[in-house]
Each structure stands twice: as structure tokens, then as C-alpha cells.
């Protein structure tokens, strides 16, 4: 843990991604704006893990794509190591891309089946730096060892490996440029239970060994609770609640977080608890509800929720939530 220094590695401020729904040439379609990500702020400290949770369509994957610079945000700021990333081009952008790498969900489709493992793992390095064949071979062997793969198998093809080993290959590829932040998008969702723990342990080992920061996206609340220092709960493109993992898991204050975590499966037959049931589907991000976006499904909805956007309430222990219930003057009707 000695490599950890204080201060955020990644700082995201009021990040926004709106897609203009253009009017079609011939059909009378509603012109509008899809607010996929709408004012999201968070920080990832050095050596820490931030978890992003929410139902599909909440904007967590779009946020990841913005951070990877696969898409450009329409507003807000991304700072990496104190430097603005938004306008980065040329060497600055290449530097950022070297420092931020990704591991995706499906180890079956994210690896090119026609390339040998050595080629897959070494590609980011050979594409970015002038390097001799010998140096590349050594680098690949070293990183394979790091993720628990036998370097002897470097000349084999992805289909010769099991799902868990393939995910190790994907992790090796993301590590070879020695990045500082990994975006992990559902990294264990496609894996069997007994393999899942192996990969999660590997990720924890790597974090400790290299002082890596993680942004972990997962629909699996158990994985999130296990891996993260901080958790951000997203709903319809916005962060409903964010704070230290223990706070969010044990003391959720936003009704959405409460409902989401009450849907977790019990660890024991006795642990079957009353679940907060959400009714209805997630509204379209093209036309989100007025006021609080969660109000159409909220079990504790009040008249004010339709009228005003709930402000961010600062709770103890660096815990933030956006809900009118947390604002006493509103609740008491003052």
C-alpha cells in the first residue's frame, strides 16, 4: 500500500452526454435530446475503486465510454492527474489513453480469435512504441506471469483457453502499457461462480501491487460491495447517491438505492427480507420526468418531487444523496 498517494487521480465534474435526436428527412419524428449522461460528478483516488451501479440504461456504460474517450462529452470536465482531458489531442491524448485502459464483459468476443495470445497482449505496446521483437516478447511474458498465465502458452489462440483464462488475457492486455486507471465494465459477469472469485482476487492483487485505480461497472451488487471503496448509484443519467461503500450498502438514504439493494439475493434462507418493489419501467431518457427523475417509480413520492429537482444533500462521512426526503424543511412542509 506504500505506493498510494492522496488526491484524486480522476476527477469528473458535471459530465454530460446528450444525443440530438435529429429530425428525419422524410418521417415526422419527434426531434429531441436523449440525455444519456446528465451532470455526473465523481472522483477516483489513487489506488482506490469506485463502483458504478444502476439498471441498464442508467448511463453507466456511456460514462465509461466517455472516460475512455471513445465518445466526446457534450459538457462537463474530465481531469486526469490534474490535467484537463477534454481538449487533449496528439501526444497528450496518447498519454491519457496509455494511462487509462479497459477490460470488458465478454472474454469470448473481446479477443480477436485469429490472433495468437502474444499478439493480443502485445498489441497496445507494439502499436504505441518503437520496440524490438525481443523486448516485446519479454514484456508479454512478464505481464502474462503477473496475471497468472503460463508464458509458455503465448503462441496459442484464444479458443484454446477457458473463460477465466481469457479474462486473464484481457487483463494482461490492459496492463502491458502500465496504466494507472482501469475501467472494468462487468469484468466477471460472464464467468462461473467458482472462476469469478479467482478473477476478483487477481484484480485486488494487481491493485495492491501497482497502486492501480479502478472504475468498476457491474450490475452485480455483491461484486460491487466486495470490491469498492466508494459506490455511485446512477439513475437515468444522473447520480442519485454516492459515498463510501459501507455507507451505501448499510445506510442507503435514497429510495432508489434502498430498492436496488433490497433486490439482492439473500446469503441464507433466513436472510430473505422484505423487498422494496419498484413498479413500472425506467422512463425514456428522451423525455425524463420533471423534478426528481425517480419519482415515477418511487414508493415514497411527494408532490414536491414533480416540481423541483432535489438538491444534493451532504450527509456525514462524505455521503451525498439527491432526494427531497433528506431535506427536512420539505418533509415537514415548512
Amino acid at each position: 500500500m506504500s505506493t498510494i498517494t492522496p488526491g484524486p487521480l480522476l476527477a469528473v465534474e458535471k459530465l454530460q452526454k446528450h444525443y440530438a435526436q435529429s429530425r428525419s428527412m422524410f418521417l415526422r419524428t419527434q426531434a429531441g435530446v436523449v440525455k444519456a449522461v446528465d451532470g455526473v460528478s465523481f472522483q477516483v483516488p489513487v489506488g482506490a475503486t469506485l463502483g458504478l451501479v444502476g439498471e441498464s440504461g442508467c448511463g453507466k456504460s456511456t460514462t465509461a465510454r466517455l472516460l475512455l474517450r471513445l465518445e466526446d462529452p457534450t459538457g462537463g470536465r474530465i481531469q486526469f492527474d490534474g490535467k484537463d482531458v477534454h481538449g487533449a489531442v496528439g501526444p497528450a491524448l496518447r498519454d491519457y489513453r496509455t494511462n487509462v485502459q479497459a477490460v470488458f464483459q465478454d472474454p469470448y468476443s473481446s479477443l480477436n480469435p485469429r490472433m495468437r495470445v502474444a499478439g493480443i497482449i502485445g498489441e497496445p505496446l507494439s502499436a504505441n512504441r518503437a520496440i524490438s521483437a525481443g523486448e516485446l516478447r519479454d514484456a508479454v511474458a512478464e505481464v502474462m506471469q503477473t496475471v497468472g498465465l503460463n508464458p509458455q502458452s503465448a503462441q496459442r489462440f484464444p479458443h484454446e483457453f477457458s473463460g477465466g483464462q481469457r479474462q486473464r488475457i484481457a487483463i494482461a492486455r490492459s496492463l502491458i502499457l502500465r496504466p494507472r486507471l482501469l475501467v472494468l465494465d462487468e469484468p466477471v459477469s460472464a464467468l462461473d461462480v467458482s472462476i469469478r472469485a479467482q478473477i476478483l482476487n487477481l484484480l485486488m492483487d494487481l491493485q495492491e501491487q501497482f497502486g492501480l485505480s479502478y472504475l468498476l461497472i457491474s450490475h452485480d451488487l455483491d461484486v460491487i460491495a466486495e470490491m469498492c471503496n466508494e459506490i455511485a448509484v446512477m439513475y437515468l443519467g444522473q447520480i442519485a447517491e454516492i459515498g463510501p461503500a459501507a455507507e451505501i450498502v448499510d445506510n442507503p438514504r435514497h429510495p432508489y438505492t434502498q430498492a436496488l439493494f433490497s433486490a439482492r439475493l439473500p446469503a441464507h434462507p433466513d436472510g430473505v427480507s422484505a423487498r422494496i418493489r419498484l413498479t413500472g419501467d425506467i422512463p425514456s431518457p428522451l423525455n425524463p420526468p420533471s423534478g426528481c427523475r425517480f419519482r415515477t417509480r418511487c414508493p415514497q413520492v411527494m408532490p414536491v418531487c414533480a416540481e423541483r429537482v432535489p438538491p444534493v444533500t451532504h450527509l456525514p462521512n462524505g455521503h451525498l444523496a439527491s432526494c427531497h426526503l433528506l431535506n427536512e424543511s420539505v418533509v415537514l412542509g415548512v
Binding site: 500500500m1 467458482s194 472469485a197 479467482q198 455483491d222 461503500a245 450498502v249 446469503a267
Partner: peptide, 26 residues
């Protein structure tokens, strides 16, 4: 191997804590 179903105060208390695994493959 069930992750996250331990006592809440276990979470991230010990940075060296690892999940129990079943080694090998089916």
C-alpha cells in the same frame, strides 16, 4: 465463494483479505 455476503464490517477492513476460491477448472 459467494462474494459480498459477509458481515458488513468485513468489507474492505483488511486490504489483504481475499475471496475464497475453488482452484482449477471444471
Amino acid at each position: 465463494t459467494l462474494p459480498g455476503r459477509r458481515a458488513p464490517d468485513d468489507i474492505k477492513v483488511d486490504a489483504h483479505k481475499r475471496l475464497p476460491t475453488i482452484e482449477g477448472q471444471p
